[in-house]
Design a protein around this nucleic acid. Structure first.
Lengths: 251, 251
DNA sequence: CGTCCGTTTGACTCATCTCAAATTTGGTGG
DNA sequence: CCACCAAATTTGAGATGAGTCAAACGGACG
């Protein structure tokens, strides 16, 4: 079952009966909540991957430090996310709380057994791993060919979609991370992030909200933001149709 | 068992008994071989993900085309690789033969069932998905913070490791892909790739082999290549130890 | 009120991109 | 085997987006 994305009717019924035991969230819900202070680490790159974590509340950054001291943030974790699944022996990155955070943990061994025993858990895990893979690939596209403005807009757009999906009608985003975090995530410098935001404000696309300013950004023109983000859903279609041997396009 | 990376003794014995049925390669080996000509597509981004493929021989590129015509190559596939696993409904990228290629295919449905029924297949799949995830993350680090020279060296180094792992003692690499492919993979332009190779030749690190030149590169100084690649195995250690709140380093 | 930290702004530099042309390679047909 | 063409690659010269270094700004907090 690991590979099929959706449960069939029978499984849905079964899942309803044993809800607590048969969903990932249920699996974690038995564990005690642990608290992380701002800046506190959940685990370090290279540590033996002994646990799987569920983020109950808060935001974390996951990152690597390069030999020359540069930091690359490979993602952020929000409430509901699960970390530590698609790993073998060791964590491939460090994880650190950006805000006060609550988490639950399960020993990998326990987690593995539970997942291997449950026909309901496997598709859920699989689905999440697929989403993670898709996200990393999008990030790869962003880093390999987008301009600073496109990167920022893509980032803000994704956050916007997340809050909209969460049922929020207001287009004001909270950015729990610092400008430096955004820079390290987007492959830019802090100065470029700052300048680009200023430019977007100038265009009327976004606006900084008064109070706890800088960490709250209002999206004034979501449509234009999507435009500027530049992934007008790519375009494999034209590729398929116009495919002639040597029509390689410029970089 | 999906989540444990290594089979235990019992499973190894069992796998030996039913080898053909209990390994991924075995699963594919019953399927007929299909041939792809150079430039021919295996599938397109957005297509319904109906099959899983094993590359028997040859090299493919997997890529996306952006709305403005730019192409981002997210990876290459070599003999022994399997494509199409970590997907839900649709392929996230197109796949195209770089050299004459032989593949085998299995319907996703069949594949999923086989994997779900076998305690031996799941860890193998899981292991491969983990490797894929690790590779994408490395690529992400490369794109977000490495210079042109570091990117090229990282790329060549990885190819070198692959051929060494394959038991090859010669340090001459075959580069089946074009310079444009390398550029699109490394987030550079073809001109920068070309210039950087020229520079590496100037330093005596690599050399272009005479005959089918350009597609065969000899690594003259593997050690220096590794140096220039720049991932002296990162350094989370110092981070863990010297962790003081505000010591963020420059980008 | 003054210090600290994160952020913004400014001025200048540089790696990489762009545009353009020269060169090499591989294939094709005479 | 050679002339020739098309594609791939290399090389050159100039443009530029983002980086670097440095300074100013602003809110938070004791």
């Amino acid at each position: 079952m690991f590979l099929s994305s959706y449960a069939n009717a029978h499984q849905v019924a079964k899942a309803a009966l044993f809800k607590e035991a048969e969903s990932l969230h249920g699996l974690f819900s038995r564990q005690p909540i642990e608290h992380l202070a701002v800046g506190q680490s959940l685990f370090f790159e290279g540590d033996e991957a002994k646990h799987v974590f569920e983020v109950v509340e808060g935001t974390l950054r996951i990152f690597r430090i390069l030999s020359d001291g540069r930091r690359v943030i490979t993602g952020f974790l929000y409430a509901g996310d699960i970390v530590g699944v698609s790993l073998k022996e060791r964590y491939l990155y460090s994880a650190e709380a950006i805000t006060p955070t609550k988490i639950r943990r399960i020993a990998r061994k326990t987690f593995d057994e539970a997942v291997s025993d449950s026909d309901d858990l496997r598709p859920e895990i699989f689905s999440r791993v697929c989403d993670e893979m898709a996200a990393v690939q999008d990030q790869l596209v962003l880093l390999s060919s987008k301009t600073a403005e496109e990167r920022l807009c893509t980032f803000l757009l994704k956050l916007l979609q997340r809050t909209i999906a969460a049922g929020n009608r207001d287009t004001t985003l909270e950015l729990p991370m610092t400008r430096q975090d955004m820079a390290d995530y987007l492959g830019l410098t802090i100065e470029t992030v700052s300048r680009t935001i200023t430019k977007l404000i100038g265009k009327g696309v976004v606006n900084v909200v008064n109070p706890a300013a800088r960490h709250f950004i209002k999206i004034e023109k979501p449509g234009m933001l999507a435009q500027l983000a530049g992934d007008d859903s790519e375009c494999p279609e034209m590729h398929r149709d116009l495919m002639v041997q040597g029509d390689r396009r410029h970089h």
